[in-house]
Design a binder for these strands. Structure first.
Lengths: 232, 232
DNA sequence: ACGGCGCTTAACGTTTCGTTAGCAGGGGCT
DNA sequence: AGCCCCTGCTAACGAAACGTTAAGCGCCGT
């Protein structure tokens, strides 16, 4: 099947937040572009034709609600799902009371995992869109992202949280060597402060579960001095 | 459907929303009138003989569900298609259930494009009855949205309100992990202000009722650090 | 007004998971 | 060949998430 790459446009003036969201989404295989204010967002929207828009309410130059209305009014963009970001309080009422046309909203502060869950949920129910990729498959391994489950030979193998995230990251980058640093950033978070060896331990546990012979790994290969690589 | 001009009555207390919907419909050639509360809606309904009614659930003076029932009870208005607007997932069950008589519903927040699509769809199939999904079935469980009742092995099991809404939400997303945040916004509402752990307790009570061995749950599975997942 | 039911919260007990540390082994570079 | 760094592995500790129970509180109906 052809792998439709989902394009996401993030309109958020808070740079750190924007960067974090973008990275998280990229890590999940999305293509992401960002805009720092409403007008910039409008421009990028027109030039890049995103499949999903993440929109902060408070924005310089052109606020999120107005932008949202503009998007909905233009037939060329009216169908694009929108997730709004908001601080708790009156802002929520504006979204839900809906002058807006947003498809979902998240109240700040929120976790990246929660954010991703919402993105998936919106994509899943958006009509007429290609279904969001939910499974990573490699030989006898099947990883369900929304169910957070691993099937090996059609039998379920229980994974811990970190194991799951780690395996997903590896499988998403099949054939590519991932450094421990990169893995830590993607799986543990940009502000991780754990030891690099932690990765080794989790790799070991993963091998225990997915390799036929854990001491002779065929799937998760060590690249000495560099990192690990998942083999399709 | 003939070419006569279609009259739509919008009963919605949120002014901006009402205006947006009205504009959208007028732009499509409908004749639109609006009412700001339930009683006003009832009056306008009698004086203007609309061909379609758009009805918010939460309304001053006379709520949407009651108004809906009144419309259905009066032979002069019983045939008029109704689209209900709702802010929460669990309100949907009240629309679908309780013989409200609505022909369709839209959960806020929604896009104007989707709104228009619903309007057209309802007009097209009026005056036939809608085919709203009424039952969620998984193995020996049957959840009737119409009756807000749960049947296990064809025997009824009583559920409290929250239990019902929670189970419905879980069953609607069979196989998908739902975070506590997501559950709270969908079941408790966007403006929830309860502790996350409240979800746990309700999950516990649900398990007591639907699991063969509540301390070894097979249907509502915990995904540590993430949330809960319903297994078909 | 009273009683019951449902919802929430708080507290406690339990389990699982993640991390660290230390040691052993081995590959590669000098 | 030898040294050193990188990696593999185990065990144990600590933290955090979850399960469970019980008590309080408000609401509704009797």
């Amino acid at each position: 099947m052809d792998e439709a790459v989902m394009k996401v446009l993030i309109v958020e003036d808070h740079e750190t937040l924007a960067r974090n969201l973008a990275e998280k989404l990229r890590g999940e295989g999305f293509t992401v572009s960002t805009a720092g204010d409403g007008e910039d967002g409008l421009e990028k929207l027109r030039s890049e034709h995103p499949d999903l828009i993440v929109l902060d309410i408070m924005l310089p130059k052109l606020d999120g609600l107005s932008l949202c209305r503009i998007i909905r009014r233009d037939a060329a963009t009216a169908h694009i799902p929108i997730i709004m970001l908001t601080a708790r309080g009156n802002e929520v009422d504006k979204i839900v009371g809906l002058e807006s046309g947003a498809d979902d909203y998240i109240v700040k502060p929120f976790g990246l995992g929660e954010f991703l869950a919402r993105v998936r949920a919106v994509m899943r129910r958006a009509p007429g869109r290609p279904a969001l990729q939910d499974e990573l498959i490699a030989n006898d391994l099947r990883l369900s992202l929304t169910g957070r489950r691993l099937f090996k030979d059609a039998k379920e193998t229980k994974l811990s949280n970190k194991e799951f995230d780690l395996l997903a990251e590896l499988m998403r980058n099949r054939g590519v060597v991932l450094s421990r640093d990169l893995i830590l950033t993607k799986v543990w978070g940009y502000d991780y402060f754990v030891d690099k060896r932690t990765v080794d331990v989790h790799i070991r546990w993963l091998r225990e579960k997915i390799e036929d012979d854990p001491s002779n790994p065929k799937r998760i290969v060590t690249v000495r001095g560099v990192g690990y690589r998942f083999e399709g």
